[in-house]
């Protein structure tokens, strides 16, 4: 994770276009200014950032399924449940599966585990639209390369 850049996942480790599933990994940083406030003497990963990690993972799934032609924007988070505390240094496994491929929107079901134990889960809705401009897409392609997004596999379907 690079919290300062709002990058909540480190790498994509599994992408199954047939099953419409994805798994990513993310290591919670040992040190971050966020932990100075959340909370003093008891650093905990904020739940909203865990939700963002699920949203980013789900978003990459949508990008893969649309062959990098469409950009998902977070629209709704439902039934978010934060089941366990997450502390600095923990390695998280984030999974997501597509629930519905609508016209201009997509719904995914995502969850996070740590050491095999449930951390959180939520149903996430995205508006899915064309990339606003080529520069935006290029920036996403750069992030994709950095997190091991299998561009070719997604393009080949």
């Amino acid at each position: 994770m690079h919290l300062e850049y709002f990058r909540l996942i480190d790498r994509i480790v599994e992408l199954n276009l047939g099953e419409k599933t994805i798994r990513a990994e993310a290591a919670v940083p040992q040190v971050s200014t966020i932990f100075e406030g959340h909370f003093p003497g008891r650093p905990l990963m904020p739940g909203v950032l865990l939700i963002e990690a699920m949203a980013q993972t789900s978003g990459w799934l949508v990008i893969a399924l649309t062959r990098f032609e469409r950009m998902p924007f977070l629209a709704a988070v439902k039934d978010a449940k934060l089941r366990a505390f997450v502390e600095p240094g923990q390695m998280l496994s984030i999974t997501s599966s597509l629930v519905h491929d609508g016209s201009g929107f997509a719904i995914a079901s995502a969850s996070i585990t740590h050491a095999g134990k449930a951390v959180c889960n939520a149903d996430i809705t995205f508006r899915v639209m064309a990339f606003p401009d080529p520069a935006f897409r290029a920036s996403m392609e750069q992030v994709a390369a950095e997190i091991g997004f299998p561009v070719k596999a997604a393009a080949d379907g």
Binding site: A76, G102, S103, G104, F105
Partner: peptide, 25 residues
Amino acid sequence: SLDFLDIAFAIDKAFGIKLPLEQWT
């Protein structure tokens, strides 16, 4: 429009279709 996404999801499921919301919009 956001609430209508929930409605479209439910309609898509109930009728086994995909409402062409993007085209309509």
